[in-house]
Design a protein around this nucleic acid. Structure first.
Length: 421
RNA sequence: GGAGAGGUGGGUGAGUGGCUUAAACCAGCGGUUUGCUAAACCGCCGUACGCUAUAAAGGCGUACCGAGGGUUCAAAUCCCUCCCUCUCCGCCA
């Protein structure tokens, strides 16, 4: 969320940002409630100051053996008024809080203005799309023939979008996870194994609730949410904590399964591995100094890109426009890998800067070295990478005319085999 | 899941209704002394919000002793609910 004071003092900027993101503008209502709130605080605190003063006097009088009943009587009226004000204030602050949660993060000036995915800007392309003297098949044909992924049995056991990975298919998954984690460790990310369920406060901290509850599976009885991404537990790892400035930047890599309900999706978008309810992902998370967060975003993007380069998979990088980048980000890159069999781009990573938006909700700060005063950190995260679509791209890119799949060289130490057949 | 004991500032830890402005010590920061280090001594040493003021600072007030309610003129202190930690029991990969 944004700082109320910031909204108060930079109303124009905030309103412009909301418009650019195509979100609902509640700023006027917020400012109105803020004015009411401050008036009540003023009156309430004056009365409380009086109460404190008189109460001290009552203590002295009683000790001196004097009769304090007149003063106590007078304070009863004050007490009633204070109770009334506190209740009013509570109502207003609840309203204010829920409205503040509807204000999106303000896009960075370097982000192109736009309303649809067509307005996203392709900023980089790498690699050559696979070519050959045969027709490249989509991965679901190949995995079926090789028997390495079983969607039907997955549907029987859990539901659509919960596949089984079998034999070399399962090993390939494990190889990719280890490869991604090793690469992250090599570039300074500390590995974190996180809970795959979180409580309400954590889900709110990273912005999944309120508003996006439908994204997540819940464990109703224990009020837990299945995580849609490791971003949630890993970022909340440091909720309500204050770092020393010299500790920054702090970098984590976490592998977890991710669970997404994906309500309402259909068609070819969800075919095969393109969209699953459960999938594996290595997530990269950073806590950084505000001065460096946009440099750190570029580094994060490079860390994610390197993985695709090492795997030899052609990809492109999109800078998301204001309207297509989501509620909590100020700037976001998407990495899309080329799926040779489907002849389309598949998103495999999303690298974002949240500035103080998440840090404020979670109260994550650092102490400024010179002054010793706490300030909010900037948080960033990016997939490094999401597995299913990478698997899809590997299978489609490295398929042979006979329907086998050549394993990329960097994975050989992990798979211990070079061909899937 | 059951029984018991706990949760106080960065840390240790005192405080069972008003004399608390949360003691004391440690750590940290600044200073004095000193050839250096150390010691000693002195001072500072939380966060949020509101009002006020400014070039920057500051000043006044309110709240915060695990969280949320309640009792009271007045709550770290009494009552209720919840969370967490520790010990023991049960269950368990």
């Amino acid at each position: 969320m944004l700082d109320l004071k910031f909204i108060r003092e930079n109303t124009t900027i905030v309103k412009r940002g909301i418009k650019a993101k195509n979100d609902v503008d509640n700023v006027d209502a917020i400012l109105e409630l803020d004015a009411q709130r401050r008036a009540l605080i003023g009156e309430g605190e004056t009365l409380k100051a009086k109460r404190n003063e008189v109460s001290a006097k009552v203590g002295q009088m009683k000790k001196a053996g004097e009769d304090a009943s007149a003063v106590i009587e007078e304070m009863n009226a004050v007490k009633t008024r204070i109770q009334f004000i506190d209740e009013e204030l509570k109502t207003i602050e609840e309203k204010l809080e829920s409205l503040l949660l509807t204000v999106p993060n303000i896009p960075h000036p370097s982000v192109p203005f736009g309303t649809t995915p067509d307005d996203n800007r392709t900023v980089f392309e790498w690699g050559e799309k696979a070519k050959g003297e045969f027709t490249f098949k989509p991965h679901w044909d190949i995995t079926a023939k090789l028997g390495i992924i079983d969607f039907e049995r997955g549907a029987k056991v859990a539901g659509a979008g919960f596949p089984f990975y079998i034999g070399k298919g399962a090993t390939l998954q494990r190889a990719l996870i280890n490869f991604f984690l090793d690469q992250a460790a090599e570039h300074g990310y500390k590995e974190l194994q996180a809970p795959i369920v979180v409580n309400e406060e954590s889900a709110c901290g990273t912005g999944q609730i309120p508003d996006k509850e439908d994204l997540m599976y819940t464990a109703e009885r224990d009020k837990l949410f299945m995580i849609p991404t490791a971003e949630v537990p890993v970022t909340n790892f440091h909720r309500k904590e204050t770092f020393e400035e010299k500790e920054l930047p702090i970098k984590y890599a976490g592998y977890t399964p991710c669970f997404r309900r994906e309500a309402g999706s259909y068609g070819k978008d969800v075919r095969g591995l393109n969209r699953l309810h459960q999938f594996d992902k290595v997530e990269l998370v950073k806590f950084v100094h505000p001065d460096t967060s946009y440099d750190e975003l570029e580094l994060l993007r490079a860390d994610a890109e390197r993985l695709l380069q090492l795997l030899g998979l052609p990809y492109r990088v999109l800078l998301m426009c204001t309207g297509d980048m989501g509620f909590t980000q100020t700037k976001k890159y998407d990495l899309e890998v080329w799926a040779a069999g489907q002849q389309r781009w598949l998103e495999v990573s999303s690298c974002s800067n949240f500035e103080t938006f998440q840090a404020r909700r979670m109260n994550i700060k650092f102490k400024v070295r010179e002054t010793g005063k706490p300030e909010f950190v900037h948080t960033l995260n990016g997939s490094g990478l999401a597995l299913p679509r990478v698997v899809a791209a590997i299978i489609e890119h490295y398929q042979t005319p006979e329907g086998k799949v050549i394993v990329p060289k960097v994975l050989h130490p992990y798979t211990k085999f070079t061909v899937i057949d």
